[in-house]
């Protein structure tokens, strides 16, 4: 499988560089705002319709809970990235509750609603409120693997807190990725808050340390710390994160008040491992589930809640400043099954 046949050419690399004017990204025109929840529901509903159709076809006129239909039911949940363990747990719960039908067929609506309830049980119905420090500043550490939307989520969070009247400082703890600080600076500008950053390659723990001092001078109410994306399998990078955490703990007892793991909704079963490893390194307190505006369902978060007790706190539904909402389990579960 050749990419292409190369032709050798011996001339030296031309030194010429194309024009290097600083290009600023375009601001996208903001579309008229719609209720976020409605937006989320609508987007999720589009793509979940087919799921529901499949289920409905499967259940037409009620179903026998035999091996075959349970396997098909399993596949519907698996397709939402719920994962084998949790799926089997949910389906076992369904079978348990279906006992009262004895040998009779189980009505389709009942089966779907029961599954939804079972999922809500796992999510424990309530929304977990984001933590706030008794004495400001509240310090929030944001972690996750590469490209999941950490920096974007921070920008959106900052905008939210600024809107609530807080003085917000962002700390650019990602000194690894090219132009990461610039990206965060653009978000700070959009959100109308301050940013503390150092040059690329600086030791992130000391950037955070200096940033916290900066926050005190500023009298900030809210400090949100960005970190470089890292795969949870890189032990040295996870150790670096623990070090950042220790610096924060030592600087401000009781902090960080919140450690958010940002996770892309399309993440598969590694999501559970991610949550476990990041929790070990930094005592994660909640999940930000991003990119729910796509077709992915984020089903692995059910397993994360179940096995690690970590709640989803926020959900990201787009790339604009206000595309962030508090997590709503009802909406999440309802959207999965596209039923009211």
């Amino acid at each position: 499988m050749l990419f292409w046949k190369k032709k050798k050419d011996d001339e030296p690399e031309a030194a010429s560089q194309p024009e290097v004017e600083a290009a600023r990204p375009l601001e996208e025109p903001a579309p008229p705002r719609k209720g976020l929840l409605a937006k989320l529901r609508e987007r999720l509903a589009q793509t979940h319709a087919s799921l529901w159709d499949r289920a409905a076809a499967l259940f037409r006129g009620g179903l026998k809970l035999d091996d075959e239909s349970l396997e098909q039911l399993e596949e519907i949940l698996l397709a939402a990235d719920v994962g084998m363990m949790t799926t089997q747990h949910l389906v076992a719960g369904l079978r348990e509750r279906a006992r009262r039908f004895r040998d009779k067929d189980v009505p389709a609506d009942w089966a779907m609603n029961t599954l939804k309830e079972l999922i809500l049980d796992e999510l424990q119905h309530e929304t977990s409120a984001p933590a706030l420090a008794e004495n400001p500043p509240t310090i929030v550490l944001v972690v996750g693997v590469n490209g999941v939307g950490k920096t974007t989520a921070i920008g959106k969070l900052a905008a939210r807190y600024v809107r609530e009247g807080m003085t917000v400082l962002l700390i650019a703890g990602d000194t690894f990725r090219a132009a990461a600080a610039e990206q965060l600076a653009i978000w700070a500008e959009r959100a109308g808050c301050e940013i503390h950053s150092a040059q690329e390659g600086a030791d992130p723990a000391s950037v955070v340390y200096d940033g916290l001092a900066h926050a005190r001078r500023l009298g900030a109410h809210m400090v949100i710390i960005d970190t470089a994306g890292r795969l949870h399998t890189k032990t040295h990078l996870m150790a670096e994160l623990s070090k950042i955490r220790r610096v924060i703990e030592r600087d401000s007892p009781g902090a960080p008040h919140e450690t958010l793991l940002v996770q892309d909704a399309s993440t598969g079963q590694t999501g559970l491992v991610q949550a476990r490893v990041f929790t070990e390194a930094t005592q994660v307190t909640g999940v930000v589930l991003t990119k729910l505006d796509g077709t992915a369902k984020g089903g692995v978060t059910i397993a994360i809640r179940r096995e690690l007790g970590l709640p989803v706190k926020w959900m990201g539904v787009g790339e604009k400043l206000d595309d962030l909402e508090l997590f709503d389990p009802e909406a999440f579960a309802a959207a999965i099954f596209n039923s009211p």
Binding site: P18, E21, A22, R24, P25, E28, A178, E182, I186
Partner: peptide, 25 residues
């Protein structure tokens, strides 16, 4: 669209020593 995406590519291009073509905003 993404903030600082162009800068990121420029830095990476420099690292691998390949020129990067970009245009002003």
């Amino acid at each position: 669209y993404r903030p600082a995406a162009v800068e990121q590519l420029k830095v990476l291009g420099e690292k691998v020593d390949v020129p990067v073509f970009s245009q002003p905003q």
